[in-house]
Simulated assay, not measured.
Amino acid sequence: MSFAWPLALISLLLVPGVLGVYWWAQRRRRRQAVRYSSVALLRSVLPARKRWQRHLPVALLLVGLASLAFAAGRPQMTREVPYARTSVILALDVSRSMCSTDVQPNRLAVAQEAARNFVEKQPKGVRMGLVVFSGFAELTVPPTTDRKTLDEAIKALTTGHGTAIGSAMLKGLDAIAESNPAVSPVGDSPDAPAANPGKPGANGFVPDIVVLLTDGANNRGIEPLDAVPYAVERRVRVYTIGFGTPNPAPPSCTREQLGGDVFDTRGFGGGGGGFGGGGGFGGFLVADEPTLKAVAARTGGTYHSAKDADQLRKVFTKLPKEVATQKRPTEITWWFAGLGALLAAAAVAASMRWSPYP
């Protein structure tokens, strides 16, 4: 614990000063008491009090004064808090393969619940944004501390055709650039990869991260590994999550998850009647783990695999620990001020309660 105004602690000298005055007053009272011809008579006219009742008001007053003296020094405690500009961008796959029922009730419903819990448990100072992607990527919620808006957006997710993982990464970088001036935007999805910027983290990382969850492989837009140099250049880590089992069950989207495609009869493919990222109904695609692992490793993040709801919840539980923090003093003056005022009031009340004079 430290103090913003340490010189104010001189006021602590009031405590021994008041204690000395009280001790002197007690000795003087004893000397005067022996002048009476009958000490027994003196005791008989005073109400009976226990020894601790006589000293309790002064004890409460002394502790209260000490607490107020500490408050005058503006005490501070140092604790770790997230950087004020930290942003966590959730990039969630909403391709039709997320309707697979290998995870009950389906992958998207489980991912929505896990993402909402993740948002709820983030520190208040962390801004969060939401990128959704299927055939293209879209920033639906810019980085914000408004958890309610983000929660409503996650609950309202609808599915589409295709899987644009690389585009989602670039859209996440642009979202971070909106709140962190140190990160430059990528702009419209480029067709060519950026120049190789070198080893990730060579110049440190920004505190902002992208958390990307998908159950398939990229089949739209820029390739994920071609998007990696843009993230490395901007010192942004990408944490990837491969979700779903190796043997997806038949899809079952709710009307809400189908959204505007509620009457779509083309099947669950990227344009050819396939399921998820492509393939026929018997040839389901699963998360492209080699690519997701490479994306995480090359940007300084980590890859996580989740095959059911419990595993996904555990993965999201680990992610906040990766966010950069800093030590910052937090003033706790009101703790001591409130305690001091309470003790002083208690001292007055005790003195009135056990006063020898009615």
Rank of each mutant, 00 (worst) to 15 (best):
M1T: 12
A4N: 12
L7A: 14
L7I: 13
V18T: 00
Y22Q: 14
W24G: 14
R28S: 14
R29G: 12
R30C: 13
R30N: 10
Q32I: 13
R35S: 11
S37Q: 14
L42E: 07
S44T: 10
R51D: 14
Q53W: 01
R54H: 09
L56V: 03
V63Q: 06
A69G: 05
G73A: 06
R74C: 10
E80A: 13
E80C: 08
Y83T: 14
Y83F: 13
A84H: 06
L92E: 00
Q104C: 11
N106C: 04
R107L: 09
A109E: 06
V110R: 07
K121E: 06
R127K: 07
V132I: 06
F133G: 04
P142R: 02
D146N: 07
D146F: 01
D151S: 07
A156K: 15
T159C: 00
T163H: 06
S167A: 12
L173Q: 01
D174V: 00
A175Q: 07
E178Y: 11
N180Y: 09
D188Y: 14
S189C: 09
P190Q: 01
K199A: 08
G201D: 05
G204V: 04
V206P: 00
V210W: 03
A217R: 11
G221R: 14
L225K: 02
E233H: 13
E233N: 13
R234W: 11
R234Y: 12
R235H: 08
T240A: 02
T240N: 06
R255N: 15
Q257V: 11
D264H: 08
D264M: 04
G270H: 14
G279D: 03
G279R: 09
G280F: 02
G283M: 09
D288G: 04
T291I: 04
L292M: 04
G300P: 07
G300A: 01
A306M: 05
K307S: 13
D310K: 00
V315C: 02
K318C: 02
K321C: 03
A324M: 11
A324F: 06
T330C: 08
T333K: 10
A337N: 02
L339E: 11
A349Q: 03
S351M: 12
M352S: 13
W354G: 09
Y357W: 14
Y357E: 15
Y357N: 15
Y357C: 09
